[in-house]
Design a protein around this nucleic acid. Structure first.
Lengths: 243, 243
DNA sequence: GTAGATGTTCCGTATTTCGGAACATAATTC
DNA sequence: GAATTATGTTCCGAAATACGGAACATCTAC
């Protein structure tokens, strides 16, 4: 399956590179001959997965847009969360986002950003670490089997390791039903997260994140109850949607 | 390149099917043996392009979301149009969308929907026909080499063929600088579109669409000047962004 | 429990993919 | 302008890979 894997490597590279790339550049980056790269690109271009520009350079194509947005449209959790994300972000005036676990990784599914100059700005589709974020800790507390702890680097001085999280904070999260992150992932970034359940299973989490200066610890009661309320609203919409 | 093409077929099928599918169903749909389908799916699952559910069925994965949204984030036209789409949609209270030509096809890049119960709801990434829509006619009038007229079916009784459009309406569009669609694509659907240029080249179009009852011909002057104004605003933002 | 349906694994063989070299085009240097 | 360099495209004999039928594992229906 080397051929298909190489094609996927090419696509991933085009995405990460960010600019249109020629076969020589792609070949250098992936250690592949120009002719191989070119041969892989031909069907990708024919079918719209890659776009060939007039200058002979290549970039990701609109087929990715169609299929990518198709994933989100068909995800019941995303559909149910949409209006709740909207209203919650407006009410708290901070970035609110939705995430879930997929193949052991926690990925951002949707978001509504705050309007401040300094704001949290997660990328949809991006992974967030399980041990150093509010959402990650929720998963570790309620459904640790759904997340992989293979990689747990220390991001900041405040980062706890998986072992350190074992009893103290996870028990607290289980008791009160929400989690928080205080600059454990990114300096200055604070977050609150609440679990979203369907059929008694953890299917995702709703989080709010922003600069520490705007989410003071003294506001924790209000902020946590906002995310818990939002998560409940999403749960209710999920239940209604399954009729 | 049969292997890669088959994998792309599988992905396209999963997208179109809309629900999670098993190898047998995919194999039947694509006339491929189960084992071939399964073998193609393995690296797709490993890398996140396809998600395998617990019940052994497969659906498109989050890698598509990352890359698809990456395409839109990096498209200067989409970035420039975003605030303009927002404000225009609010002002006219109808669906406003952005489209461009890619490999001879006209594709929707972004949109902001009206809030009416009855509204136009284009799908981002979807193709719109060139001969039966306002945007398509803009391209035929100003840059016909960018669009393919290979397929020009009659959608409604109002649809004109490419030949019928040759002189009469295209000249008018060239003269007044905007185009309209009066139920030529979909019965009851009316649209107005204005060209977006950069460096004297047509790079896209801004359109407004909605039910005929809400976009009366008597309102054409106001509506067309809205889309023309919005297109100019996007052009200005494009020019500013290229410094 | 049996039969049928469906996802997963295996391996000899046919098919496909590979990549160096030639070619075509564009850009740079003198 | 000519020569050189850089880069995208095409070609084809040989090596590598993908193929798919069959066996296997698991689940569902009667």
């Amino acid at each position: 399956m080397a051929s298909l894997e190489r094609a996927l490597d090419v696509l991933a590279h085009l995405h990460e590179f960010g600019d249109a790339a020629g076969v020589t550049q792609i070949g250098r980056a992936l250690d592949l001959p120009k002719s191989t790269v070119h041969r892989l690109l031909v069907p990708l271009v024919d079918r719209g997965w890659v776009e060939r520009r007039e200058d002979g350079r290549y970039r990701p194509g609109m087929m990715l847009v169609s299929l990518g947005l198709g994933v989100l449209e068909r995800e019941p959790l995303v559909v149910a969360a949409q209006p709740v994300l909207e209203s919650t972000a407006q009410r708290v005036e901070q970035t609110v986002f939705l995430a879930t676990a997929r193949a052991g990784r926690i990925l951002v599914l949707d978001k509504r950003e705050g309007t401040g100059f300094l704001r949290a700005s997660p990328r949809i589709g991006a992974e967030i670490p399980s041990h150093a974020t509010a959402i990650g800790k929720l998963y570790l507390a309620f459904a640790p089997q759904l997340v992989s702890s293979a990689s747990a680097p220390r991001f900041t001085a405040a980062t706890s390791s998986i072992e350190e999280l074992q009893n103290a904070e996870l028990s607290l999260i289980q008791t009160r039903g929400w989690a928080t992150n205080r600059e454990e992932w990114i300096s200055g970034l604070v977050g609150f997260a609440a679990p979203i359940r369907f059929d008694d299973r953890l299917v995702g989490a709703l989080a709010m994140a922003g600069p520490a200066s705007q989410l003071p610890a003294t506001d924790a009661a209000r902020l946590s109850s906002e995310v818990v309320g939002a998560a409940h609203a999403i749960e209710a919409r999920l239940k209604r949607g399954s009729k």
